[in-house]
C-alpha cells in the first residue's frame, strides 16, 4: 500500500465513523422532530440523554475527515468545495444550527418560548445536514457535480433515512424502560424498511439518468457491498425485533460501512468520479507520511480517551 492509499483509508475510516456516530446524533434530531404519542416528552429526554455527552466528540470525525482531505488530497478538497459550494454551505448551516440549538434548548428554562424555538431549530437542522451531505456525495458520484440532479437529491433522502435508522437502533438499546424502548424498536424497524425503499430509488434513477454510475454499481466490489448492506438491514430488523441489542448495534454499523464501501468501490480509483484519481490528487509522500505518523501518535491518545467516554456514558453502569 502506498502512502496515498493509507491516507485514503484513514479518510474513509473517519467518514464511516462520522456516518455511524455523527449520523446517529443527527438521526436523534429527526426522532426529536417526529416525537409523537403519549411518551413524546420521554422520547425527547431519551434523545437528549443519549446525545448530550458524546455529540461534540462524534462531530470531530467530520473535522478529521476534512483535514485528511485537504492535507492529503488538496486539489480534491479545492475542487469539491468550489463545485459543491452550495450544498456544502447548506450542510454547514445545519451543522451550526443543530449543535448550537442542542445546547441552547438544554440550558434554556424548560418550557420557555426560547426552549421551544430552539427545539424546533434542532429538529429542522438535523434534517438539513444529512440530506445535503448525502446530496454532495451523490453529486460527486455523478461525475458532473450535479447536486440538483434527481440522483443526488435521492441520495440525500437516503442518507437522512439511514441516520434515522441508526439513531433508532441505538435509542432502542439506550432508552430507559420497556414502553420507551418499544417506541424506538418500532421506529428502527420502520426506518429499516424505509431505508430499503430510499436505497432503491437512487439506484433506479441511476439506471435511467446515470448510465456510467449504474454500470459502476454493478462492478463486483460495489455490488457485493450493496448486497451486504441489504442483508445487514435484514439482520438489523430481526435483531431489533428479537431484542438482540448488541447484534443490532453491530449490524447497523456494519451496514453503514457496507454502504460507504459500495460508494467508494463504485468510484475507485477516482476521488471525484471521472475527474480526479487518488494518485493525481495526492500530496507529496513527505506530507502524507508525516500525516500518517501524526495519526498513529494521535490514535495512542485518542482511542483510550474515546473508550473512556463511551464506557462512562454508554457502558454497563449507565443506569441512573
Amino acid at each position: 500500500m502506498n502512502p496515498a492509499e493509507g491516507a485514503a483509508l484513514v479518510g474513509l475510516a473517519a467518514i464511516v465513523l462520522y456516518a455511524i456516530f455523527g449520523g446517529a446524533d443527527f438521526g436523534g434530531g429527526v426522532w426529536d422532530l417526529l416525537a409523537t404519542g403519549p411518551r413524546r416528552h420521554a422520547q425527547r429526554d431519551a434523545i437528549t440523554h443519549a446525545i448530550g455527552p458524546v455529540w461534540e466528540a462524534n462531530h470531530v470525525w467530520l473535522i478529521f475527515a476534512i483535514v485528511t482531505l485537504f492535507t492529503c488530497f488538496p486539489p480534491a478538497f479545492a475542487d469539491i468545495a468550489t463545485m459543491l459550494n452550495a450544498p456544502l454551505t447548506f450542510a454547514l448551516v445545519g451543522i451550526v444550527l443543530r449543535g448550537a440549538a442542542f445546547v441552547f434548548r438544554n440550558y434554556a428554562t424548560p418550557e420557555s418560548s426560547v426552549a421551544h424555538g430552539w427545539t424546533a431549530v434542532f429538529g429542522a437542522a438535523s434534517l438539513l445536514t444529512p440530506f445535503w451531505l448525502g446530496d454532495s456525495v451523490g453529486a460527486l458520484a455523478t461525475g458532473r457535480y450535479a447536486w440538483l440532479s434527481p440522483f443526488a437529491l435521492a441520495v440525500g433522502v437516503f442518507a437522512l433515512v439511514a441516520c434515522a435508522q441508526i439513531a433508532a437502533v441505538f435509542l432502542a438499546d439506550e432508552a430507559e424502560g420497556e414502553p420507551l424502548q418499544n417506541d424506538f424498536r418500532r421506529r428502527a424497524i420502520i426506518a429499516t424498511f424505509a431505508l430499503w425503499i430510499a436505497g432503491a430509488i437512487p439506484i433506479a434513477i441511476a439506471r435511467v439518468t446515470e448510465s456510467d454510475l449504474f454500470a459502476a454499481l454493478l462492478t463486483p466490489h460495489a455490488a457485493i457491498a450493496i448486497s451486504c448492506a441489504i442483508v445487514l438491514g435484514l439482520v438489523v430488523a430481526v435483531a431489533v425485533a428479537r431484542r438482540a441489542r448488541l447484534v443490532a448495534r453491530v449490524a447497523v454499523g456494519a451496514e453503514a460501512l457496507a454502504i460507504l464501501i459500495g460508494w467508494f468501490g463504485a468510484q475507485a480509483p477516482s476521488l471525484i468520479a471521472g475527474h480526479l484519481t487518488l494518485t493525481a490528487a495526492a500530496s507529496s509522500d513527505a506530507m502524507i507520511v508525516a500525516f500518517l505518523i501524526a495519526c498513529a501518535g494521535g490514535a495512542v491518545v485518542l482511542i483510550p480517551s474515546l473508550a473512556l467516554l463511551f464506557y462512562v456514558f454508554k457502558g454497563p453502569r449507565r443506569a441512573g
Partner: peptide, 8 residues
C-alpha cells in the same frame, strides 16, 4: 496540513 491534523 500537519498542524491542522494535530489540532484535529
Amino acid at each position: 496540513g500537519l498542524p491542522f491534523s494535530l489540532e484535529g
